[in-house]
Structure formats: C-alpha cells, structure tokens
Design a protein around this nucleic acid. Structure first.
Length: 254
DNA sequence: CACCGATAATATGGATCAGG
DNA sequence: CCTGATCCATATTATCGGTG
C-alpha cells in the first residue's frame, strides 16, 4: 500500500481513517484491544472513535465486542461504482477477449501509486487462472497496467513516483532500476502495449493496453493475466484493438 | 481569498467501574 | 484476572472572525 496522502489537518479523521484501514486489512473482525494495539492509540480513544463509527454504521459492533467494517461503506461504495461507467463500456470487449483467449481479463484504474482492479472477466472452468480480487491493489511499476500509467507521466512526475516509492522489487524479475524502467516505458509508448513478465508474481505474466479519455490521457488499462507459459504475445494486439475501441467510446479521437 | 491566531470546544488518556 | 465501558480534569484542537 503506497498512499502518499497529504497531511491531515484534523487528527481524529486521521485516526478514524487509520482504524478503518486496520479493519480493512484484517481478514477477520478485531477486538478493541487489538485495534488499540495495532493503531497505537489509547484504548479509550479507540473506543470512542469506534463508537461513533458504529453509530454512523461505517463499522459494525458484533456481539462479543468485536469490530468489522459496516454496510454503510457498501452503500457509499456502490454510489461510487455507479459513477464508473467505464466498466459498462469495457465489459463487452472484455468478454470478447476472454472468449478468444480463455484467460482472465482485468480492467484497472490508477489510484495514488497503485492500480486498483475494478472489473474482471473470467470463468472458473478448466485449469489454473490468475485472478486478482476486484478492489485489490498493486504497485504501478510492477504491473502491466501500472506501467501504462507510468508511461503517460512526464519526466518530473515519473521521478517523483520513483523517489516516493523507491520502486521496490517483488520478484527476481521486477524492474527496480530507474534507467531500465525509463527505457521500458519509452518502448511501451512506441508499441502501444505493456508487459509484466513475472515482475509482480513469479509464474504470472500480463499484457495490457491503455484506455484513453477524450483528452488523450490514460484513464484505465485493459489487461490479460495468465500463467507465464500460456501467454501468447499476439494477444497484445487484441488488447490494443479492444482498448482503442473503448477509448473511442469515451470520446478519444487519436 | 488565503492565512493567522485567540478562544471556545473537544478529544485525550489515566483512573475507575462493570462484568464474564 | 482480563477486557471493555465510562468518567473527568486538562491538554490539544477546530473554529471563526479578522487581517494583509
């Protein structure tokens, strides 16, 4: 998680956010004591904040005293989701790509220094599939879609990203030096698609093509992920074609 | 319009209580 | 005895009106 948030000016909001993040990171519910320990907040501070979150239903207070994220977040999340109509536009194309390749097709957008998966097309049948959860995140420089966004940055913004994150490696194949990354991004802009060659996860390769808005900015990426040996590089052209089609529907005329 | 700063309002955390 | 809930004095913070 790499969220370089500007400084909070209201402390409780920062703390509230911290508690919600802790709840989000935990797979199970957490007790007051655990939350206080992990957040390093005083137990009574924790208790008060959580109490108010329970009143607003951002957090649920389970019998037994444990806390978990509440349904209110789903309500709000759905409002946001409805706004992201890029998914609707992209979905038919994603289905088509999936039908043709048999592999998982993802749609992702950029948020801070990460990409977030917002839509997915796959079928559980036959063999191993690479499936990332919707809402899941991954660093820009380690993913095919992320590199599309990086390739769209100017030199200053790219340097800024590199400094802020330190472009850490995730596997032995990760590109974690600035020069190599820069060269790769230049190549991406030339060829119109990007590759993640087992850089985020061993054994998994991805191909991706960018979706542009009416101003010609990259707003999302269409990607295909599969076990490394199954990837066919010809698919990158299919991705490109599909991404181009979606871009046109978004009003991009390039 | 953004930025200060005094002050009212609030959050804090140690202490204490409750209950299992 | 341990965890969670509540209380309360006070340190910290948010607010709002003024100023450049």
């Amino acid at each position: 998680m790499s969220d370089e948030s500007p400084k909070y000016s209201i402390q409780v909001l920062e703390r509230t956010n911290l508690l919600m993040d802790l709840l989000a990171q935990s797979s199970s519910s957490l007790s007051l004591k655990e939350l206080a320990a992990r957040s390093e907040l005083n137990i009574s501070t924790c208790h008060r904040i959580l109490n108010d979150l329970v009143i607003s239903q951002f957090v649920e207070h389970l019998p037994g005293g444990r806390y978990q994220l509440g349904l209110r977040l789903l309500e709000l999340g759905n409002l946001v989701k409805n706004r992201l109509n890029i998914q609707e536009l992209a979905y038919p194309q994603m289905q088509e790509l999936h039908r043709k390749t048999g592999e998982t097709i993802n749609l992702s957008i950029k948020q801070g220094n990460d990409i977030v998966y917002i839509e997915r097309c796959w079928s559980g049948q036959s063999g191993v599939h690479v499936v990332r959860p919707i809402g899941g995140r991954a660093p820009l420089h380690l993913t095919a879609v992320g590199k599309l966004f990086l390739a769209d940055l100017d030199a200053v913004e790219l340097l800024d990203y590199v400094h802020k994150t330190g472009i850490p490696a995730s596997t032995s194949k990760s590109v974690n030096e600035f020069e190599r990354l820069k060269n790769e991004l230049a190549a991406i802009n030339q060829q119109g698609f990007s590759i993640d060659n087992e850089e985020l996860e061993e054994g998994v390769r991805c191909l991706a093509a960018a979706i542009f808005n009416e101003q010609g900015k990259v707003v999302a990426g269409l990607s295909l992920s599969a076990p490394a040996q199954r990837i066919q590089y010809a698919w990158s052209q299919d991705l490109r074609r599909a991404a181009k089609g979606i871009s046109r529907e978004l009003g991009c005329h390039l």
